[in-house]
């Protein structure tokens, strides 16, 4: 990437609690435009919650979270924060694509209908244009011939690739992946990772919660290890994976690597 880095996601001392359970404790990190960040850590470490905060599926309790310079979920007026109207929040979200562990495709729609739904309903794209673009995207994820298939008739890997195409159809400037390969049979993981690698190569800014250390090592620009709601260690993925400095990171990596 170029020297003058433009931040895409800036998290400054972000905290989040569910009831009395604090799941995020003062998370500070930055992801620059065009970079890929991999978030790793044991389950319950808060990495998924952090991801969900970025597109305001969860609301942060403290700190400031900005995407492309804009505060997520709030508007600043002087030193006051104003809650966004759900419609404004929806406008923010459509620029952030999200891919879920369990795909969450709409089962009553074909693959193509899944991909064109949001562009037509949210962005008011004419149907013909949306279909043309959707076919391009399905071809890009290697599913050019599956447009008319219902999710139930696709394998997990194919479903996840449709889900990626669905997110890309909104032309997001940031893609969030929440353990995209964890629900897949081992032999299907590769096809999804390949699509994600290609996406990274094309310059998409991505935050990936994953247990795929090989992917992190190969694709990520930085790696963040979280545990217990805090960032334990962050840095170059090759460096962190081969020479973890913290005991907790070492213990975790020795189990997953």
């Amino acid at each position: 990437m170029s020297e003058n880095k433009v931040p895409m996601v800036e998290s400054a001392r972000v905290s989040k609690s569910f009831g009395s359970n604090q799941v995020l404790k003062s998370i500070s990190l930055t992801v620059n435009r065009g970079e890929v960040l991999c978030l790793v850590g044991p389950s319950g470490s808060g990495k998924s919650t952090f991801l969900r905060c970025i597109n305001h599926l969860e609301t942060v309790d403290a700190g400031r979270l900005r995407v492309d310079g804009t505060l997520v979920g709030y508007r600043e007026k002087g030193d006051k924060l104003l809650e966004l109207h759900p419609k404004e929040a929806a406008l923010q979200r459509r620029e952030i694509g999200m891919v879920f562990q369990r795909f969450n495709l709409f089962p009553h729609m074909t693959a193509l209908e899944n991909v064109i739904e949001a562009p037509i309903r949210v962005n008011r794209v004419p149907k013909a244009d949306a279909i043309r673009r959707a076919n391009e995207l399905l071809a890009r994820v290697g599913l050019a011939d599956k447009g008319n298939a219902y999710p139930a008739h696709l394998s997990g890997g194919q479903q996840q690739r449709v889900a990626i195409a669905r997110a890309l159809a909104m032309d997001p400037k940031l893609m969030l992946f929440d353990e995209p390969t964890s629900a897949l049979d081992p032999e299907l993981v590769g096809e999804v990772l390949d699509v994600m690698k290609q996406l990274a190569k094309d310059g998409m800014t991505m935050i990936v919660v994953t247990h795929e250390m090989g992917f992190a090592r190969e694709v990520a620009d930085s790696l963040v290890f979280m545990d217990g709601g805090v960032v334990v260690e962050a840095g170059d993925p090759r460096e962190v994976l081969s020479n973890p400095r913290h005991e907790r990171t070492k213990a975790f990596l020795s189990k997953v690597l």
């Binding site: 597109n55 599926l57 879920f100 969450n104 709409f106 739904e117």
Partner: peptide
């Protein structure tokens, strides 16, 4: 997850 996916798409 259905509601979540739709919300994340900006619907």
């Amino acid at each position: 997850g259905q509601e979540e996916a739709a919300t994340a798409l900006g619907m």
